[in-house]
């Protein structure tokens, strides 16, 4: 092992020095601590996401995966820490970042159609006060088509299945034409067809030079779907290319003594044919 692939959470020894990739990295987090009430949920997280890659955030329940992305986007207040997207604060690059929240976060009986929801992804482009024009509607329609829901564009969203709702959210993110897609558990409770669609889309995005950071809970599929992984358990346990990070040893660190999960993961590693040293 020549270089340490295990991400070091150590601060650079020269105190004022900035971590290296800041300007290139779609998301860099420095010394971020997030606390609900008395207890910190994330402690001193340092992370630089690689550009043009699919990154999975993996960790046990309560490890702070969703909190990490919410705090990065400013939806949850940070106790300390600096978050930058391509080396600048979020507010300067809002249109380059698309966020896909968890499906349960909205009221699906709301009186809007699938197309309306997708159009919301373009509101930033359209700007204040102006109505949604035909060109934007066409763009939104194209995004719905990419997730295979063009036929259902005018359905009210409550009449869609769970997987279709997730795909609508995905289409909305696509409609933002962002460079970075941040997704919170997009695979949770979706059908096989939707899962395939999401994976294909992620690969297409990466091939188009975009990045995606995805909170993921299914250890079995991490190695198949993603290039990089961030193992999180209140702080960064390991980060790097999946085949190097996603080792039984690191999983032991992330998941501790959870034997069932561990055996599951070992199986996944074996199935993916990764050479474990």
């Amino acid at each position: 092992m020549t270089t340490s692939v295990v991400h070091t959470s150590r601060r650079p020894s020269s105190l004022a020095e900035r971590p290296e990739h800041s300007a290139d990295s779609p998301l860099s987090i420095h010394a971020m601590t997030v606390a609900y009430q008395r207890k910190p949920v994330l402690w001193d997280v340092d992370y630089d996401a690689p550009p043009r890659a699919l990154v999975a955030i993996v960790g046990p329940n309560g490890a702070g995966k969703s909190t990490l992305i919410k705090a990065a986007l400013g939806l949850v207040p940070r106790a300390t820490g600096l978050v930058e997207f391509w080396g600048v604060p979020f507010k300067h690059v809002r249109e380059r970042v698309a966020y896909v929240p968890q499906r349960e976060s909205v009221d699906w009986t709301f009186p809007v159609s699938a197309l309306d929801v997708v159009c919301m992804g373009r509101y930033r482009r359209i700007g204040w006060f102006r109505p949604v024009g035909q060109a934007h509607k066409r763009a939104a329609m194209a995004c719905l088509d990419r997730v295979g829901l063009a036929d259902l564009a005018h359905r009210q969203i409550s009449q869609l299945s769970g997987g279709q709702q997730q795909r609508v959210f995905l289409a909305r993110a696509l409609a933002q034409e962002a460079d970075l897609y941040i997704m919170d558990e997009p695979f949770a409770g979706v059908d096989a067809a939707t899962e395939r669609t999401i994976v294909q889309l992620l690969k297409d995005l990466r091939d188009a030079g975009k990045s995606a950071i995805v909170v993921h809970h299914d250890l079995q599929t991490v190695t198949q779907y993603f290039d990089h992984a961030l193992l999180l358990n209140m702080r960064v346990v390991a980060a790097g290319p999946v085949e190097q990070v996603f080792t039984p040893d690191n999983l032991q660190k992330t998941y501790g003594g959870r034997l069932t999960l561990l055996s599951e993961a070992a199986e996944a590693v074996a199935r993916a044919g990764i050479n474990v040293r």
């Binding site: 986007l73 507010k91 709301f110 919301m120």
Partner: peptide
Amino acid sequence: AAFDPALATAQGF
């Protein structure tokens, strides 16, 4: 903003 306040805020509305 009524449907998805988080998205609205993240988009700058």
